[in-house]
Amino acid sequence: MRSAHRPHAAALPILQGEGIQLGPWPERDAVADAAALARLHADPHAMRYWSTAAWAPDDLPRAHAFLDDVEAGARGGKLLRFAARRPGSPGLVGWVTLFRIDPPRPRTEIGYLLDPALWGQGFGRRMVHLALDHAFVAIAAQKVEADVDPRNAASCRLLEALGFQREGPLRQGWRSGTERQDSAIYGLIANEWRG
């Protein structure tokens, strides 16, 4: 029997927000989801500030490996990756991940990716809000952290609007292509959450 902290990926709850829904990765949508993942991860705009390079176009094997990692992470209880969709539409528009979940002293990190066609419309903020509510209520996390490229002003603003505080830089903490990059470390503590 699975504990509340170790859901199967298909058993992830559906988190409903205004114009956005987070939920599981149903088996029936695996082919379409893999194609959408490959498209999103190959988009140079979407991947501009990631710690990994954009995927090669139509890299379906890598997309299927991503979906396998979703399942394995959920089984291990350390990673919950929600598919983001528009209500009433099966199409994948992004994802939100809660990872490095560490019960019994719950602390987690958050990551997210949204189709650039939806940027600037509040969808990113709403999907991160849904995931944070899940982290603080269902998982009982005491703290959620985010590691952001400091040049990604939109992502920094999104986190700050949700109550995250910038806790400091991590100098040259990762490599993007051929360059070393700093990270802006953000943190949000449970009693600061305004969910």
Results as ranks from 00 to 15, higher is better:
Q165V: 13
I189T: 05
D102E: 13
I189N: 06
A74D: 03
H64D: 10
A138T: 12
H5E: 12
Q181Y: 03
S176L: 12
A140Y: 09
V96L: 08
I101W: 05
D182V: 12
Y49C: 04
P7L: 15
C156F: 03
R151F: 02
A190N: 07
F82Y: 05
G23Y: 05
T97M: 03
L158D: 04
A140H: 14
D115T: 10
V70T: 09
D29K: 04
H5P: 01
R75G: 08
S176R: 09
I110T: 15
R125L: 13
G23P: 05
W25M: 06
R180T: 02
R48Y: 04
D58Q: 12
A84E: 00
R107D: 14
I101C: 11
A84H: 00
Y49F: 14
G124W: 00
A53P: 02
W25L: 10
A63F: 02
F99V: 01
V31F: 07
E160T: 15
G17R: 07
E145L: 13
L12Y: 10
S89E: 13
E145V: 15
G163K: 02
R151S: 11
R6C: 15
A53C: 09
R6I: 04
R180H: 11
R86S: 02
G88E: 03
A10N: 07
Q181F: 07
A42F: 09
G94Q: 02
A36H: 03
P13L: 09
L15P: 04
A34S: 14
R86N: 02
A138R: 06
L114K: 01
A141M: 06
L92H: 10
R62T: 09
W193V: 12
R86K: 11
E160M: 13
F123A: 08
I101A: 13
F99R: 11
L60S: 08
E160Q: 15
A11N: 06
G120P: 01
